[in-house]
Nucleic acid binder design. Structure first.
Lengths: 223, 223
DNA sequence: TAAAATATTTTTGTATCCACGTATTATCAA
DNA sequence: TTGATAATACGTGGATACAAAAATATTTTA
């Protein structure tokens, strides 16, 4: 089974890794809000370790764009402006488009059925209103990306999904109807089945770009 | 003047920043080779600081893919396999293609002339055989990306250029003839001038993908 | 009331210490 | 000799205490 996202839980080897996962998780689920200050001491105490590994984790989180580190001013939860959100969706559109193009030639029937199962799960999560939908949605996109067998590509796309996850949650909670997502994603599968790589790439690009405006209302006006 | 890469030198505010720049620079210029171990103590002594900021810098460098951090085994200079190199070029092709597409509508005559000047500089650096060519080449691509006015996009592309820089240097040193680069880059400018966004995007994509195979011979067989 | 001076809190970095994993070397048996 | 194994040196990951510098908050002064 190729690498996919969301990343499956994994025993954390080092303290830094634990701190990284801990804070990332909190950010993904929106436990910290944009602008919140993250105090190394507090977080260290929370997980039961010293400042050092937490500070190291901050560097990685900053690199991921989840957090902003300003000299002598500490660590603050990053918020996205509307422009930044659009930019991320533009980037996602070409990266996931590429993933689709590369994945296409090697998808077999079994994998198509897997994708359809994932679509089903996403649909069910959506109807039950649980914000599990966001995870299922990531799972669906992650599965397709995984089929490209491009580790770096998968990693980059995954990182972008993490950044937008909090906004996806707010969005989904606010408009709980399963909206047009079902058809859009079904169309992606259909395009994959078509055998036309460039067409499938385009469909994925359009799908991603079409969701950006819907989300845009829910970004924090911060920054 | 919009942000571009290579990043212009900047007073390092923190020790971590200094360590980060120091090691990144060494890696870009190939002072450390893939597989080399980086010992925090040594590097700290080299710059005149303690281990902590160096360790933090390592996390960022690892996040950039310049270095591999394995638990209890420390920090090792990352090397690219041929597959990874190709993957990076695939990613570059769609990201820089996107940058071109977005930049196109807002390029004015002045900026075209600037690009032509940069092309000229690159050409001269190539003829003089100085490995300055690599920097000029980055400058050219960086300028075009900058015109897209997408900070995150620029940042991501820049990070990829840093990763491939050592290989570009080896490549250039080994085949010092100015090869077909001149025409390729002139074609990019021409495509930008054409006013056809999708065509320009395609030209940039093809340009980038065409250089990958030439470089592929020079990747370390390490990993 | 506004500006200046002072105190406080945070952040950043240093120095030092220790437990533990890894790698290397030396030792010993086949 | 050669291969396995034990001893050792080294580096890593982490803790902790401390100092300097910067930012922030508070008080004093004009």
């Amino acid at each position: 089974m190729p690498a996919a996202f969301p990343a499956e839980p994994q025993m954390s080897a080092t303290a830094e890794e634990e701190a990284y996962r801990h804070v990332q998780r909190a950010l993904r689920f929106g436990r910290y809000k944009p602008g919140d200050r993250l105090i190394p001491e507090e977080i260290a105490a929370e997980i039961g370790m010293s400042r050092m590994p937490v500070r190291e984790a901050f560097r990685r989180l900053a690199s991921d764009g989840l957090v902003v580190l300003r000299p002598n001013r500490g660590c603050v939860v990053a918020g996205l402006t509307v422009d930044e959100l659009y930019e991320i969706f533009e980037i996602r559109s070409v990266l996931e488009g590429l993933a689709v193009r590369l994945a296409m030639p090697r998808i077999d029937e079994e994998e198509f059925e897997e994708l359809e199962r994932l679509l089903e799960r996403m649909e069910r999560a959506g109807q039950s209103g649980s914000s599990d939908w966001v995870v299922r949605h990531q799972e669906f996109h992650g599965r397709i990306c995984a089929l490209s067998r491009r580790p770096k590509l998968i990693h980059q796309i995954s990182a972008l999904h993490v950044v937008i996850e909090p906004y996806m949650r707010i969005w989904f909670d606010d408009c709980d109807k399963p909206h047009s997502a079902r058809e859009e994603h079904a169309a992606v599968i259909a395009a994959l089945r078509s055998g036309d790589e460039l067409h499938a790439e385009k469909v994925m690009q359009d799908h991603i770009l079409s969701t950006a405006p819907m989300l845009a209302e829910f970004v924090s006006p911060s920054r």
